[in-house]
Design a protein around this nucleic acid. Structure first.
Length: 614
DNA sequence: ATACTAATATCA
DNA sequence: GATATTAGTATG
């Protein structure tokens, strides 16, 4: 009889020991009895016969994790404070039953013709294990990616291509398939089971050699991974908001090291961290330098300046873009008399007004109720709604500009890849005149013919209590401005109370990076320090407060870490649970990890390198 | 994680 | 006092 330490895949349990008649490989996935059900577990190591009677494994599956996968999972569990079982559940295991078929004939791949600048970048990247490709929007990063992928195919190696949002995939999918056909697969967490299985079959058999997709694509069971590309590497959506709270960009770099694969990060607005950490390779704009005029205006509503500009552009038969940072219909009910906002009874956040559905909704817990007529604190009536949402913006514009066709582009209206395709097609076909939306606009693709971009509400982001508020704002500003005027001269209208902040960096993100870095260095924030956040949530506020204080007390004994602050989280309550947090800082991550492993317990959640502080 | 158990709240 | 709900614990 053999005995094995195992981890239950996707579970919190530290480890359980099972017996087996036959010898098993480390990494093998087995199904095991636990209480009255069976679970999947992964074999970690052989152990001597334990003092208790170990149950026998039920079944040895055809799946297994490689030692590399186990190593990376171990790192993730230690660095991001999750169980090993949770970390390994990120990965899709390999399959013993499916033998890779003979590789594709890869000699006749057609690759894009590179410009001289692209070719230089390509050559430079070939000689680097890791690099940050700093390329202005429209400079043609994708051709470089495709060439590198092609090179990998020729060497028999696979590529993982990460993108921040699934919604951006349709255009990229087409582009990749034009070059690599069946060897490309798109991967994201919302694939149906069947689709997933068919893609996995392609991956196992070796037919699929390029997997493109969101965060989770990092964990597919490709053979011989030679290249990992993280496009839009500055994007915060690479950070997982649930356990394990890993950062896909950072895990990609680690994976590259472990697998001996090249890692390429790319962005037009790189993160401060990557800019300082990795070799920077620049790809500048092609010689056609289009004319872009910036106008800065004040206010925070759709005023006459904006209406006139959009209207004029519409009369000329040209297309415009309007950006708002808030989610569609995201307005609060607020009382003019006492100034209070109507809050969700379970979460301490404003209830969002969904006027077309005639209800109020909490965006944290989805609690829904009828629209209030009067203030629940002072009884004052009527209540006012505040803050501009896409819906109201559309109403204002359609009323003011007769005949204009507005395409709404936000999470509310673009729920599926199909809807995205349709919206983009309508815009490309000139069926709509104005593309109006939220952050989604900054991510999507190029809208070559746009000659007017209106950027509103950046001040709301700039004003966030977040050490990266400036970086996030500037990145957004560059990303949106970069969408327009590819082909023709264009105008960018920025509505802000702080025009000087933007003016000083127009057209030069690197200058912003440099100045921001000296600011971050002075303030001792990342990349010049390491941060961790502890979250404590519980129904009983006294209990939360106590755990917070106890944890703070324990942490005080560690000299190398600084407790930046602790107390109620900005969002005090979610789904009826009170939330407290502790923010920690240290010169490096080592003392942070050491001290946190000393206080880690089931009551708290640790978020390393946090990007969200609410 | 989840089945099982102990503890506590709810109710006629 | 019996039953429903919740909190706690061990699982191999």
């Amino acid at each position: 009889m053999f005995f094995y330490k195992t981890f239950l895949i996707g579970s919190n349990v530290p480890s359980l020991t099972y017996a087996s008649q036959e010898e098993l490989q480390v990494g093998a996935v087995v199904s095991v009895p636990l209480k009255s059900s069976t679970k999947n577990a992964v074999i970690i190591e052989e152990v001597s016969q334990p003092s208790f009677t170990a149950l026998e494994v039920c079944e040895v599956t055809a799946h297994y994790y490689t030692s590399k996968q186990l190593e990376i999972a171990k790192f993730i569990s230690e660095y991001y404070f999750s169980s090993w079982g949770e970390a390994i559940s990120l990965f899709v295991p390999y399959d013993k039953n499916i033998e890779p078929v003979v590789k594709y004939e890869n000699n006749d791949i057609k690759l894009p013709q590179l410009t001289q600048a692209q070719q230089q970048v390509y050559d430079a990247l070939l000689h680097k294990d890791r690099a940050l490709l700093f390329g202005v929007t429209g400079a043609g990063k994708t051709e470089v990616f495709i060439s590198l992928m092609g090179k990998m195919l020729q060497e028999g190696k696979a590529t993982i291509f990460l993108m921040p949002e699934i919604s951006l995939t349709p255009q990229m999918e087409k582009r990749l398939q034009r070059y690599f056909g069946e060897q490309v697969a798109m991967w994201h967490s919302k694939l149906t089971k069947k689709k997933k299985e068919s893609i996995l079959e392609g991956i196992y058999s070796g037919q699929v050699r390029i997997v493109a997709g969101a965060r989770s694509a990092l964990f597919v069971p490709l053979q011989d991974i030679g290249l990992i590309i993280v496009d839009e590497e500055h994007d915060d959506s690479y950070k997982a908001m649930t356990r394990p709270r890993y950062h896909a960009r950072d895990v990609a770099v680690l994976m590259g090291q472990k697998l001996g694969a090249k890692v390429l990060l790319a962005s037009a607005t790189p993160s401060m961290t990557s800019y300082t950490k990795y070799d920077v390779v620049k790809l500048d704009k092609p010689f056609i330098q289009t004319n872009k005029r910036y106008t800065f205006i004040s206010g925070d509503t759709i005023n006459n300046v904006i209406l006139n500009a959009v209207s004029k552009n519409y009369q000329r038969g040209e297309q415009s873009l309007l950006f708002l940072p808030t989610r569609g219909n995201f307005k609060y009910l607020y009382c003019e008399n006492c100034g209070k906002t109507h809050l969700c009874p379970y979460c301490s956040v404003g209830m969002a007004l969904h006027r077309n559905h005639k209800h109020l909704k909490c965006h944290y817990c989805n609690y829904t109720e009828a629209i209030r007529e009067s203030c629940s604190y002072c009884g004052h009536s009527p209540l006012r709604s505040e803050r501009m949402g896409t819906q109201e913006a559309i109403e204002v514009i359609e009323e003011a500009i007769e005949g204009i066709k507005v395409e709404k582009f936000d999470k509310d209206s673009i729920t599926t890849a199909n809807k995205l395709k349709q919206a983009l097609r309508r815009f490309e076909n000139k069926e709509s005149d104005l593309l109006l939306g939220t952050q989604m606009l900054s991510k999507g693709h190029d809208y070559a013919d746009i000659t007017l971009s209106v950027i509103m509400g950046l001040d709301h982001i700039l004003g966030l209590a977040d050490y990266r508020a400036r970086e996030r704002t500037m990145s957004l500003f560059f990303q949106i401005a970069g969408r327009s005027g590819r082909a023709k001269a264009s105008e960018v209208i920025v509505q802000t109370g702080d025009p000087d902040f933007f003016k000083s960096y127009v057209g030069d993100y690197e200058l912003f990076i440099k100045e921001e870095l000296s600011f971050l260095e002075m303030m001792e924030y990342p990349p010049y320090a390491s941060l961790a956040r502890i979250l404590i949530a519980h129904k009983d506020e006294k209990k939360v407060a106590k755990i917070t204080l106890d944890t703070v007390a324990k942490l005080k004994s560690f000299e190398e870490i600084e407790i930046v602050g602790h107390g109620k989280a900005p969002v005090e309550k979610i789904a009826n649970k009170y939330r407290y947090h502790i923010l920690l800082r240290a010169k490096s991550r080592v003392p942070l990890l050491k001290s946190l492993h000393g206080v880690d317990c089931k009551e708290i959640e640790i978020d390393m390198d946090p990007v969200e502080f609410s």
